[in-house]
Nucleic acid binder design. Structure first.
Lengths: 222, 222
DNA sequence: CAAGTTATCAAGGGATCTATTGAATAACAA
DNA sequence: TTGTTATTCAATAGATCCCTTGATAACTTG
């Protein structure tokens, strides 16, 4: 007990999970799974990987305990293994933004010009007052897998043809997968171009969902 | 904007930090730095690595933005780069405990039999009532670098000879580096063997410190 | 049962990572 | 200056990781 060998074994066991974060492909798969469970094929297509490669990386994530796997007839559906994993991924993203300038630079390149954002707290009070319309611009399946209460689904590809559904006299808030997802940025630009007021929610569905759970827990404790 | 190349660049930038978690040696170095800043030589000795190897890993951590480096005369002192990094490390440890059975098994092997633990909330109320004595059993330098308010320092190596300093009529709570540190476990066993009541604090100094900061922030916001 | 999907397996070349060794450098003290 | 200590650099061999390719397995549907 307390020997070097046993201490090393401990850190090696943790590094097994750490290794899972060492590949950009796996990170992208995790990011997709943070929205909704998906099959290998869907994940491979969304991340521009060959099926075999996506499958291999998913197996690595599975071995690291980060995703669960469920057979569904002819296909296999992978999902994040739990909230610990989600918050770990969000913590990595957060820390990398804070510490690596390249991440912010890469994000700017990918997202284009910054658009006005609104924070969680402000959105909650505005929603309570009823003077904003909240729009989920992710694909319909992701909305179906979970969304912010009170949001309506208008996938980004349908937005242009459904602009008329949005009120002209209220501000519109759009949200999507998270701070690195281009959908909400695009949506805000489109909505603003139509003469309406619009902002994007600072975070996306995964962050919102985690925040909900932790405030609920804190309230229960108090 | 929004192209595959730019999206890949984004995930590659994040993976730069993710790669830092892929090696057990680097994790151990991080764990040591979570207690207090240290020089290369100290880190190498504490982690049973050659100086050159420790230096190389520290440089990798530095490139990943996870540690800062400061020259101090003839030596170089490394420190965690910020709270985001600390909470990221704690999140990894937490998720690995939750998801990888091997981690818990390895921890049990390293720590020996479980001893009674006390949580943060209970400790706070007991401290307020003044009916427990809180002991920091880490090395004196780590106590000096930061400790729980109201704790007294009795490094584990000195504990046996200083048992008399502990009151027999109050419960003693010992804490150390964290849930994977053997010091508090050992301390509780020693104190109990001397006929006193003792428990270990569930978490260690790093967790406590982060929790302090986040409750303070929440209170400021409210 | 045959054909078609979907996912995994197996093997290999190329890239990357790791620890070791020994030399080089920087700061300081005598 | 010369020696001492603390750290980094450079080179290297061995291990591991990554993606591709082609075959295989599991299951569904016609």
């Amino acid at each position: 007990m307390g020997s070097r060998a046993e201490k090393s074994a401990l850190f090696e066991a943790i590094a097994l999970m750490g290794k899972a974060f060492a590949s950009p492909v796996r990170l992208e798969l995790l990011d997709l799974l943070a929205q909704a469970p998906r099959t290998v094929d869907e994940l491979a297509r969304s991340s521009d990987q060959s099926t075999a490669n996506a499958s291999q990386h998913l197996q690595a994530l599975h071995a690291a305990g980060m995703v669960t796997r469920a057979r569904e007839g002819t296909s296999t559906r992978y999902a994040l293994a739990g909230d610990e994993v989600l918050s770990l991924w969000l913590a990595l993203r957060h820390a990398s933004i804070a510490r690596l300038g390249d991440v912010e630079r890469a994000a700017r390149d990918y997202l284009g010009d910054e658009v006005d954002a609104i924070g969680r707290d402000e959105l909650i009070t505005r929603l309570r007052k009823g003077d904003v319309v909240l729009v989920d611009v992710r694909p319909a399946e992701e909305y179906a897998a979970g969304h912010i209460e009170g949001a309506r689904s208008i996938p980004i590809e349908e937005l242009e043809s459904r602009l008329a559904e949005l009120p002209a006299d209220h501000e519109v808030v759009a949200y999507c997968r998270g701070p690195f997802c281009a959908y909400a940025h695009d949506a805000v630009r489109q909505i603003q171009a139509s003469g309406r007021q619009a902002r994007r929610l600072q975070d996306g569905w995964p962050e919102w969902q985690l925040a909900e759970k932790s405030t609920r827990k804190r309230r229960r404790a108090a």
